[in-house]
Computed example of a mutant assay.
Amino acid sequence: MPEVNVEINGRKYRMACEEGQQQHLIGLAERFNTHVEQLKGAVGEIGDNRLTVMAGIAVVDELAEAERKIKALENDVLVLTRAGQEVAAEIESLEGQFAARLSEAARTLEGVASVLDEAAPVPQG
C-alpha cells in the first residue's frame, strides 16, 4: 500500500492510501491544512489539538452544507422531471388530437373532391 507524506499545521505525517490515490490524499491534506491555517490566523495559537478539532468541525460543517444543497438540488431535479413528464404527456395528447383532426379534415376533403368529381361535367372530346 503506497504511503505519502502530508503536512498539517507545520507537522509532517506519513499516511497510507490506496494505489493511485496519492495525489488525491495530498490534495485533501493541503485543503485541510488551509482550514487549519485560516483558523490559526483568526483565533491565534490555541493548541494543536483544539485547532485540529476546530478545523475538523469546520470541514464537517462545509460537508453538511454541501449535502443540504445536494438534497435541495435533487428535489429540484425531481420536480422538474415530473413537470417534464407532464408536459410530454400533454404534448402526446395534443399530437393525438391533432392527428385525429387532420385525418378528419382529410376525409372531409376527400368527400368534397368526390362530390366535385361527380358534379363536374365530363369533357367530351
Rank of each mutant, 00 (worst) to 15 (best):
M54T: 02
G47Q: 09
G44H: 12
H35P: 00
G56Q: 12
R31G: 11
Q38S: 11
I46D: 00
A42M: 14
N33V: 03
K69S: 12
L63K: 14
E30N: 15
A42N: 11
L25R: 05
E37I: 05
R50P: 00
A55K: 00
E86G: 04
V77Q: 08
V43S: 06
E37F: 02
G44M: 14
I70H: 04
Q85N: 10
R82K: 15
N75Y: 05
L63F: 15
L25Y: 04
L80T: 03
D48N: 09
E65H: 08
V36P: 00
I46L: 01
R31K: 15
L78P: 00
L39Q: 05
G84E: 02
V79F: 05
N75C: 08
G27E: 13
E45F: 06
A66H: 07
V79W: 02
A29P: 01
F32V: 09
V87H: 06
E30C: 09
D48I: 04
D48V: 04
L51I: 10
V43E: 07
A72Q: 13
V59L: 09
V60D: 07
M54S: 04
I70N: 05
G27P: 05
L78G: 02
D76Y: 04
R68L: 13
L51S: 05
R31S: 13
G41K: 04
L51H: 03
L39T: 03
V53H: 02
L51G: 04
A29C: 02
G56C: 14
G41C: 02
V53T: 08
E74T: 12
V60L: 15
V87K: 06
T52N: 07
V79N: 06
E62K: 08
A64K: 07
F32C: 10
E86S: 09
T34L: 14
V60R: 10
V59D: 01
L73G: 03
A83N: 11
